[in-house]
Simulated scan of single mutants.
Amino acid sequence: MVARDYGQYDGITQALELVGERWALLIVRDLLVGPRRYGELAAGLPRIPSNILAARLKELQAAGVIRRAPRSRIVLYELTPYGRELEPVVLAFGAWGFKALGDPRAEQIITPDSMTISLRTAFRPQVAAELPATAYGARFGGDDLLIRVQGPELAVTRGDGPADLAFASGPGIHRLISGELTPEAAIDAGVVEVLDGPRILLTRFATTFHLAA
């Protein structure tokens, strides 16, 4: 099923016809974090109309990008192996878009899945490999993420747990990740609130997760 036909024959055109419709790539972004139920996808994309979400899911299934995966009494949507090939594309696209981020508008939010992908995008495994293993408990709005860094490996999961540093932030976290604000300046400006643990570990976080704006 092709929602839009550009009338051209090349790989970029074909890719746009498969995932270029509005919301499609954000659905892929969230499914890169893990399988999701329909309601979870809708909750993670609060502005998507239900008919558009249903249509995009059908289109992505028809394109072989995602599939329905019945589990017990529920149905999950997950990426196919072909769909998972989009991960480096999505991360590169996110890094490119990060350069154009301005200050967040009042109505703009970050979700656990969008932040997870942002962290994957900003993660510097070669830098992390030289640093001690560290667990960060991050609260974004009402959602908690547990960010574990061990050598060049990154694991981000929902929920809380034992952490060396716990902090709270919002969309303004991009100012720390970009280097616009130093860790101390981010704390002083209220962009980051340290909830538990030594403040100096926020410097390690900013060193481990960095994207040039």
Rank of each mutant, 00 (worst) to 15 (best):
M115W: 08
P35N: 03
T207A: 08
Y136V: 12
R199H: 03
P70D: 03
I12T: 04
L211I: 13
R67K: 10
P125T: 04
V194C: 06
P88Y: 02
M1K: 08
S50D: 15
E193L: 06
E78N: 08
L211K: 05
R29L: 15
A138R: 00
P35V: 08
W96P: 01
A15N: 15
Y82A: 14
W23Y: 15
I48S: 11
P152C: 09
T121M: 15
R204N: 10
T111W: 03
K58V: 15
L45Y: 04
A54Y: 14
T116N: 06
E40L: 13
A129I: 08
D144H: 09
L16F: 14
L181P: 01
I66K: 05
L18G: 08
L154K: 02
I200C: 04
R175M: 12
P49G: 09
T121N: 11
T157S: 05
P49N: 13
P81T: 00
D196V: 12
Q14G: 15
Q61Y: 09
G190P: 10
A206F: 07
A212S: 14
G141V: 12
F167H: 01
A206Y: 09
V156W: 02
A92V: 10
P35K: 01
L79N: 01
G97L: 01
D10R: 03
G83D: 00
G159R: 02
E153V: 11
F140I: 15
A129R: 06
A128C: 14
F98Q: 01
V65F: 02
A42V: 10
A206R: 01
A138S: 07
H174G: 08
G83Q: 00
Y6R: 00
I12S: 02
D113K: 06
L91K: 01
L86G: 02
A138P: 07
L195N: 00
T207P: 00
T182K: 11
A166Y: 01
N51W: 08
G44A: 11
H174Q: 12
T134S: 02
R175F: 13
P70A: 00
A129Y: 05
L145C: 07
V19E: 07
E193R: 09
A24H: 03
R84E: 13
E17K: 07
L60V: 09
P162T: 04
A189M: 06
L79A: 04
L211V: 03
A24Q: 13
Q126H: 14
G170T: 07
V191Y: 04
R148M: 01
L181K: 09
R71A: 12
A186V: 12
R29P: 11
L176G: 01
R105E: 13
S169A: 05
W23T: 10
T111R: 09
L53K: 10
T134F: 10
P171Y: 06
G34M: 06
E40K: 07
T80H: 07
I200E: 14
A92W: 04
A100R: 11
Y9W: 11
D5W: 12
D164I: 06
D164L: 01
K99Y: 00
W23Q: 09
D164T: 00
L57A: 08
A95E: 05
G151Y: 06
G172D: 14
A213W: 05
I200K: 08
V28K: 12
R47G: 15
L57K: 07
R67G: 03
R22H: 14
L31D: 07
Q126I: 15
L16G: 04
T208Y: 05
L31H: 04
P198R: 07
A189E: 12
